[in-house]
Amino acid sequence: MVKKRLGKIKGFSIQFLPYSEIRGLDSTKRIKRILNIVLGNNILIIQGKLEPEEETRLIEDTMAMMGHVKNFKGIELAVISGNGGKSGGFFGRFKRNLANSIAGEDMGAVTIIGPATIIKEIKRNPKKIELLLKG
């Protein structure tokens, strides 16, 4: 269904943001950077995930911006956690925990954020994630 309609969608791009790009930023700057990218009609894929407090801050700032930015109707957001699965055994878990403790983040996670004017819905279940775009 998405494939059939994809040709009709114009004016957006997909950007990948490695965690190293936002690692040094404080929460305020991190969220500002994310929202700036999303407001430029981009779907953003971030390596890693935000802290729970940052996620709510992102929602708060999104809501606050909706009153000030014309045609901005909010965002769609989904986080696919990298350390939620049970596969990998002891060494897999150890490596993940080590990576997380060094980076302070779940580096195996992926966060998808996009403007609600482009993304109709992000459907997810434990096995897959579907990005439904507006035609």
Partner: peptide, 17 residues
């Protein structure tokens, strides 16, 4: 509704924190 909605996960994550 689908429970795997990011808003649900975000709220729970904040309460746990």
């Amino acid at each position: 509704q689908n429970p795997y909605n990011q808003v649900n996960i975000t709220i729970i994550g904040n309460l746990v924190a």
